[in-house]
Write a protein that binds this DNA or RNA. Sequence first.
DNA 1: GTCTATACAGTGATAGAC
DNA 2: GTCTATCACTGTATAGAC
Lengths: 187, 187
Amino acid sequence: MPPRAHNPAALLMQLAAVFREHGFEGASMARISAATGLGKGSLYNAFPGGKDEMAVKVLAMIDDWFETEVFAPLRTPETPAVPAVRAMLDACQGYFWSGGRVCLLGAFALSDTRDRFATAISGYFRRWHDALTAALVRLPLPDDQAAALSEEILSRIQGGLVLARSLNDPACFVRELDRIRARLARL
Amino acid sequence: MPPRAHNPAALLMQLAAVFREHGFEGASMARISAATGLGKGSLYNAFPGGKDEMAVKVLAMIDDWFETEVFAPLRTPETPAVPAVRAMLDACQGYFWSGGRVCLLGAFALSDTRDRFATAISGYFRRWHDALTAALVRLPLPDDQAAALSEEILSRIQGGLVLARSLNDPACFVRELDRIRARLARL
DNA sequence: GTCTATACAGTGATAGAC
DNA sequence: GTCTATCACTGTATAGAC
């Protein structure tokens, strides 16, 4: 029922929404068709590989967004560490709708869909972890401590999203982000 | 192909394994039949409510285990706070197979299965949070700080599991638990 | 209780008209 | 490009024999 999106980027956004809402297996072609306003024929014309190709392209779009908006800034040597990490947290708060939205990569990771998209999922989190570690090294912090803190922060972000969904309380996620911010301020 | 389990508890354990491995939607009756060695007829005889009833009973079994092994000890006023929380972390490390196993409640929470089992999921995490908060209050810690730290620890546990699955590196989860233990020692 | 056979809706995917 | 019709298949669930 939403207006049909002729441009590919908007179409991918709609697909991402369906995958986030229903998961990979739950996102049937019928639901996708209804959500995009496109018939199955049109969908298979746009994505000859079917659902798999849709998911791959959606994950790639998300990855691209984080790469340019989150990872790259973290790696920029000119940006001081603390503002860089704070910008990352702000970006996450915005992207995940203050806890009202799930991380599709994380959700896929917990399902049996993981194996199918294993490289996309692990690559996303590995590059996030590396970029965040690089920023923390500029605090300065020893390599091992930076890597450990980076892992902790990623865990807390993902866990905050899990908890927010579980308790049906998005504010959970924002509180966790705030605690990370406070922790950062104490470093 | 595993030997068929005549006793209900063992059957539920097998069902839990299938749900953990494939998710709710991915756990088809065919797979469940193969994993338990029971025909569909037998399964519907044991669970007239079908898959829904299976999942409800599995979630209840998991909830029971945590209630007696984790939540109740945390609430016991006689147990000092730090040993109580350490015992909880050890229990989690064992239960989740050092990161090789997923939290079924958390996995369901991130999928569209959440709505169907919302009360079971939110109840589980709420009681976990309350019990952990109760333990932290005995540190002693002010109520609000205890609640915040409790929320943080739960986030880190769940996030550690997500990260471990995402990176295909179970050690991720153990490292996060170790960091929580270190944090606890500094309190 | 356990099985086999079956009903029937829904799945992903394809073909072909327009 | 978009649609409709249709494919073969799998999904859950049920019925009934043993």
